[in-house]
Design a protein around this nucleic acid. Sequence first.
DNA 1: ACAATTGCGTACCGTACGGTACGGTTCGGC
DNA 2: GCCGAACCGTACCGTACGGTACGCAATTGT
Lengths: 228, 228
Amino acid sequence: MQIVDESGAKAERAGLNERQNAVLESALKLLVDGGEKAVTTAGVARAANCSKESLYKWFGDRDGLLSAMISYQAGKVRTVEVRSETLTADGLRKHLAAFALDLLDVLSGEVSLALNRLAIGQTVGRTAVRDARGAGPTLGRLLEERGRRQIGRRATTLLEAGRKAGLLSFDDADEAYGTLYGLIVTDAHLRMLLGFDPAALKKEFAGRAERAVASFLTLYGVGAMAAA
Amino acid sequence: MQIVDESGAKAERAGLNERQNAVLESALKLLVDGGEKAVTTAGVARAANCSKESLYKWFGDRDGLLSAMISYQAGKVRTVEVRSETLTADGLRKHLAAFALDLLDVLSGEVSLALNRLAIGQTVGRTAVRDARGAGPTLGRLLEERGRRQIGRRATTLLEAGRKAGLLSFDDADEAYGTLYGLIVTDAHLRMLLGFDPAALKKEFAGRAERAVASFLTLYGVGAMAAA
DNA sequence: ACAATTGCGTACCGTACGGTACGGTTCGGC
DNA sequence: GCCGAACCGTACCGTACGGTACGCAATTGT
């Protein structure tokens, strides 16, 4: 396989060319509406109009394919940086609300749910089914580092900005973020992973986000900020 | 709630005799340290010293076996009723702290984690892999109803008692419970499901529970109760 | 125009698993 | 002492999947 020039329009994520991304897209589609068992090498090859041999050449292994799917999807998530100065009380509240909605949106996404199910299904004990070969990091680790970490960074920087602006008060930003996360998500994520219809929960998202932010500000807000 | 060991004489849960419970115990052991793929009919039969034919006679199906495993394990969880009268401020705080610790304990249990992984792994979209035959409710539903529901009931009755005693203030008990759950668990459950070592998290349980209860009381406590 | 690379389609192999069938054995009732 | 039921151990069958090999078309470089 040769490395094609990177100037090709878009994508080219992580050294994968356009064709391979298309394959991953097909594989993700299969995963979303068929579960892990639907992601067979033959099935992916058929769905993507490529040969199994190419799959193995590109991804080395079924596990390699699965890992690539996670990395590929994670690469799609864009975090929006927040400008730390000019942070008013109402601005912070709005930013927090927006974050809450984004978080719920991401977590309830079909692809996200499918990938989480995949990674969890591969997990056993505190490691994961380890292939004979080296087989890089666990799928769970991969998902956590590429997914949750990114979102967490965005949140903590926002919280730090709030503290610098004298609007929030806390010792440990990570702990505060943990609280915020818990208030927003509660057990909705797990229930969706278990099959609860996301559509039914999505209707509550707005209210849920609002209440979570209100509670969070009650706990960590300074002065007027803490008023419900 | 506590995990009781009913190995003595009785049990006979849900129409299953002692022998079959022993088989389920073996199957759970296999699941815990081998993941779903380790629970093969032949493997269970070998581990339990029974024949495959008996497995099929008793549980009808591999899915039936998996369902029985969930039901069986869920039957072990006993919820401790709380006496609603004579509820002092400090008593409520203690009860909440105890609940928080119990919740974290249950969720971090190896068997619980393995079963959650199993149910999640079987889930696809908003349903689950549906067997040819009727095949009762989804494993995810089963797990949610027999596990989470029970714990939730205990919590909500405790919260109701607190409200009746004039110590707490909220409109919707379920919503308040959701907040409590989120404050306690945050994303610890998901991370453990993804393979994060529970032992590493268990050290924080005490502190985490305490902080969660304090935050909860700040949000929902009445008067002196709300003081950290 | 020719050679080489790439990749598709398909056929193939070994294995592992779900599910069934069968012979032998234990155990309780009569 | 005999009978039937329950059950164990094992062998067996069909299938599906991961992974590899091969033949042939298309594309690319020279």
